[in-house]
Design a protein around this nucleic acid. Sequence first.
RNA 1: GGGCGCUUAGCUCAGUUGGGAGAGCAUCGCCCUUACAAGGCGAGGGUCACUGGUUCGAGCCCAGUAGCGCCCA
Length: 944
Amino acid sequence: MDKAYSPKDIEQQWYQTWESKNYFAPSGEGNPYCILIPPPNVTGSLHMGHAFQHTIMDTLTRYHRMKGDNTLWQVGSDHAGIATQMVVERNLNADGITRQSLGRDKFIDKVWEWKEHSGGNITQQMRRLGDSCDWTREAFTMDDTCSNAVKEVFVQLYQDGTIYRGKRLVNWDPKFHTAISDLEVENKEEQGSLWHFRYPLANGATTADGKDYIVVATTRPETILGDTAVAVHPDDERYHSLIGKTVLLPLVNREIPIVADDYVDKEFGTGCVKITPAHDFNDYEVGKRHNAPLINILNADAAIRDQAEAFDYKGQPITDIDLTLPEGYAALDRFDARKKIIEDFDALDLLDSIKDHTLQVPRGDRSNAVIEPYLTDQWYVAVESLAKPAIEAVESGEIKFVPENWSKTYYQWMYNLQDWCISRQLWWGHRIPAWYDDQGNVYVGRDEQEVRRDNNLDDTVVLSQDDDVLDTWFSAALWPFATMGWPEKTKELDTFVPSSVLVTGFDIIFFWVARMIMMTKKFTGKVPFKEVYITGLIRDENGQKMSKSKGNVLDPIDLIDGIDIEGLVNKRTTGLMNPKDATKIEKRTRKEFGDGIESYGTDALRFTFCALASTSRDINFDLARVEGYRNFCNKIWNAARYVLMNTEQHDCGQNGGELSLSLADRWIWSRLQATIKDFDNYIEQYRFDQVAQSLFGFIKNEYCDWYLELSKPVLSSEQSSEAQKRGTRHTLVNILEQVLRLAHPIMPYITEEVWQKLAPLAAIEGDSIMLQAFPEFNAERFDQAAMDDLEWVKQVIVGVRNIRGEMNISPAKAVPLIMYNGSETDKRRYEDNQNFLMSLAKLESIDWKNAGDTLPVAATALVGNMDLLIPMAGLIDVNAEKARLNKEVEKLSKEQQRISGKLDNANFVDKAPEAVVAKEKDKLADVESALNKLKAQVAQLDNI
RNA sequence: GGGCGCUUAGCUCAGUUGGGAGAGCAUCGCCCUUACAAGGCGAGGGUCACUGGUUCGAGCCCAGUAGCGCCCA
């Protein structure tokens, strides 16, 4: 083995072996265990959030596979409607081709072409991470199986009335020319103005204070052209007399009513609200209550129409309204129209005032364009009937959120569900299986043939399919059963629905988790998963969200392979939305990373993610942690080197032969059992941070720091028998072999690499560690007495080291040790373990002395009631030793005061449980005994 | 406005039923000891945000205050 751990030399090769041998496929035996991957976008590349969640999913998958479960990690990707269409369209535009000039069919061919060539980026990156998902079952939301499921679900939901078509206000993205769901809208606080306009009262009416106009306030003047009412609060005395009267809408000269509605906030603005039902969600509701017509003034570009259009609330056109719009507005963009409205009002002396105002601006999460409430025909899912069983599934505990608290977020949304707009005006996606005849009648079916057959439409009837496609989340909602072959009755549907656990972020509880529960319940009668483990969100080391525009993104692959500073700067500063940020980002990146990022390897990265996976909802990713765990990998690597150096070419008991186990051997076996138990418990609770900590502690602090050191005297001593040496070699090899299996789910590569070399020495045959059984707790190996005895050995050694350290005695200098005033147990332990003590404490000699024996002037440490003495002659400075002891005395005195204070409190003694009181008494006795010894020792030094 | 969360060592975070404040990294000292200097050994460092309550006992339970953050409207 090389002297240093070098991840790049071992990782890729093992992944290829595993995949080519099909080790990732379900075994077909054992209890089903299934994880569904949240399908990443085909356009996507792996970001830190993926890497984090994939680490957790893969750890669970490998763990359960080794536990003997019939394990499937179902993999696949999502066609990502808008995102993919954008990418392909941008590429075409670069060649001077537009989507429209190409036509729909050819454009879709281009998307598929793109998908074949570039869509696999993220799946290659997943392989670098070691993800053991079953690639032979890789699914895509646009493939035939998923598409069939989508059609089937749509048709069935349409037939039972759950899917309907209607003219409603939607969130319209004027940049992409499509409707989006309310979840895809981000409301951002922005600075704007509140304009106050005068609306003249019609027919000679006046306000209470004699004015012939009222003042309305608005943040969106351009919508004035679509006003169909003005609302005031019914209790607002200022306007009481005007209710039922009308105003003459300036510029348009439309007479519109003043209505009373509770929705109005008397305190806001002037207390008069213009109502534009076709261009505002709240106004739509108000307008509906007062039957104010819907007047649409915008086109799909969010520019002013040539002529307005009017509808009632059933979506029927209204014909008896003058739809003329004022001159000069046609085709004006909404923001230009806004300016013109303000100017025109000002010219008419109807602009009352302008105030600064902070408002929530809705923006598309992909386009960042200001979203326009817009009246269009769209398809909807009426979610109420689907929601009920989905809520019950969580309430009843059939589905469990981990951490449990996230169920509250789920309920909060589920209790306030809005119907889901599922149609999108895009080309890339599942085309809606609805056909129209030339009368505008709609027919829904799995295909045109079925539609004709079911509706008795012969070839003379011309049918055209709906141009729209379905929201990407619609197909994603079917993921749990569509990937298993539904609507066919497949073995996978029986075996892997419900899946075991969904691992995902809280940001898509609404988008995806809730919708999967609704759809899977509806169509399979089963829940999609038994547990939902909600992970935290990965942020940078300062708690900032990682984003391209902040220039603080880390690419997981760069952490694995390393990247030089130029490469990193280049990556962070190209393709910025705002190129002006580049200088700032470059400066920061150079300051933070200096020479770039070292190569840490996949295993270290994965271990880091596990170590950070506490219950917290934000996870600040600190590169220093990765470095620490890369060093940990190096530790494992070198421990393995030590083991191999001492066991290869030797008898390790793999072929039988007497094994005589030392105290250290029995101790490390016991500690391993405890670690295995911890591992199982913590995995069960999804506490990957604790799993990592427990593993780290065992390997580093127990196996490496103590056990390997304790093995040295046994192997090197001429006094050791062959059986003793064989016992220790056997323990060295077999503990490491088991610990590799224990660590494999988190660190697949290094464990495989080392295991391959080690397994023969443990007489284990097998092609791969990933197919080995997971270690099991073995009560026979758990030896409490051995742990107590070794604890004593450690205390003696630490006591001596402590004195050495504090007194700056060279580790090369062997020192004499006196044990004084020990018990029978101390004596037995001393006699049994001289070899260990001499070696690890680097002793010259050990003398056992009893009470009454004369003692040299010495430095002191305590092990229980026993004194450890290191004679000071020539070695130790008296004043330094006094200072050291006094510090200890001070510490213990505080402790003594604290405990005796407690025990002097009658309430405590009376009311606290006996065991607690007894414990405190013991503690006090120990502290006092130690104090007396130390004080006596100080006094003795004072006498020199 | 409604909901949720956070505040513990210089930094990033654990702290499971209330009973001796922990880890990693960073810092300081000694050491290139034949697995590992990406290392070893040792050490220092905390008013557990604040106030009050419950309790024999509170980082943990309850109420309130301050600051920070997220989601929804």
